[in-house]
């Protein structure tokens, strides 16, 4: 899977990176990334996740070729 992160998450991760590990769903991905980078745990907890330009829930089953976008809380305006 490919991961793309936005805004403040770029201070914690590369903007785009590959993960070849077997991670079954979004909840597991969130836990894995939080363990990898404990400084990002708080922001990951309140982030939204999207695949193919659609938001997905924590139980979304990740497919190997998915690109998963991780969005911190919006701050437009």
């Amino acid at each position: 899977m490919k991961i793309q992160v936005f805004a403040v998450l770029k201070d914690h991760f590369d903007k785009e990176f590959e993960l070849s590990r077997d991670i079954k769903d979004i909840a597991s991905l969130k836990a894995y990334l939080s363990n990898q980078n404990t400084g990002a745990e708080g922001i990951l907890q309140i982030s939204r996740f999207a695949v193919h330009n659609e938001f997905v829930d924590l139980d979304y089953a990740i497919k190997p070729n998915d690109t998963i976008c991780i969005f911190p809380p919006s701050s437009g305006g």
Binding site: F6, V8, F71, P72, P73, S74, S75, G76, G77
Partner: peptide, 14 residues
């Protein structure tokens, strides 16, 4: 409209 754009749209300010 402005409230929802600020809080929901995938836009971030630095």
């Amino acid at each position: 409209i402005i409230h929802r754009i600020k809080h929901e749209a995938t836009i971030w300010k630095c």
